[in-house]
Amino acid sequence: MNIRVRGVMIAVAALWLAATPAKGQAPSAGFPAYTPPRTADGKPNLNGIWQALTTANWDIQAHGAQPGPHPELMGAWGAGPGGQSIVEGGEIPYRPEALAKKKQNLETRMAAKVTNDPHRYDSGEPELQCYRPGVPRANYMPFPFQIFQTPGEILIVYEYKGASRTIYMDPHREPPTDSWMGWSNGHWEGDTLVVDVTGFNDHTWFDRAGNFHSDALHVVERYTPISPYHIKYEATIEDPNVFTRPWKISFPLYRRVEENVQLVEFNCVPFVEELMYGPVGLYKPPSR
C-alpha cells in the first residue's frame, strides 16, 4: 500500500474518531472511577502479564459451541466453545464481495498450502500454520502476553509463537514495509494508551471463522486501566477494501496474578511441520 493512500486513510480515520463521542476518564460499566499507578515517568503503568478471556479467537462474532473440523480424530478436544460477540453492534460491515470471501475462508480454513509463491497465503487459517496472528487478534488469542513499558518504546511479547511488537512512543517511526504484526505508534490520552497500527500485510485473519482484512487495514487500539487487575481494551478497525465503514471491538484484559507467573514458550513451528511439509513429501522424521 502506498504512503499517500495510507495517509488519506489515516486522515479519514482521524475524522471518524473525532466524530465519536469522547469518553474521557469515564469508568467502564460496573467499575468505579480508577486512577492507575504510575511509572517513573508519570504514565499509567501497564506493565504485567495480561490475557483476554473471550472465545473471540474461534469467532469474533456471536457463535454457539461447535464440533472441531475433525471430530473423528479430536473428539471434544477439537471442539470450539460458544461465546458472545466482541464486535460492537454484533455485525461486521462487510462489502458484499468481501462477505463471500469470508464464507469461502471458513470453508477452506484447514487448507495448508506450501508453495513457492504467494498463493500459499490464499487459503488456510494462519494460526493453523503457526503464522504470526496480527493485531488485534494477538490480544485475544487464548494465551497470555506481557507488556514492558519504557518511556520511548512499549514492547509486547505474546506467548503464542513468541510473537512480539514494539509500540513506538517517542519518537514515532514510519512503517518500513508491510508486515504480519503491523507497525505501532502510540501516545497517551489521559490514562489511555492509544496505539495507531498500520503497515499490515493481507495474510492474517481475525479468527478461525475466516473474518479477514486487506493490506489497507488500519487499527486504532485503546488500552485503559480500569482496576489494578483489568484493562479495558478497545480497537477500531478500518479497511475500505473490505468494510463499508470502520467498526469496533472491545473486551477486558485480565491481569495474571498467579505467584511467579510467567510466559511459557509456545514455539509452534515444530508442531506444524508435518501438516505443512508432509503433503509435499518433505516431512520424514528419522523415528518413523
Partner: peptide, 12 residues
C-alpha cells in the same frame, strides 16, 4: 543420522 537415509525431511 546415517540410518535415516534416504529418509530426508525437514527435521533431519
Amino acid at each position: 543420522a546415517q540410518a535415516r537415509n534416504p529418509q530426508v525431511g525437514v527435521q533431519t
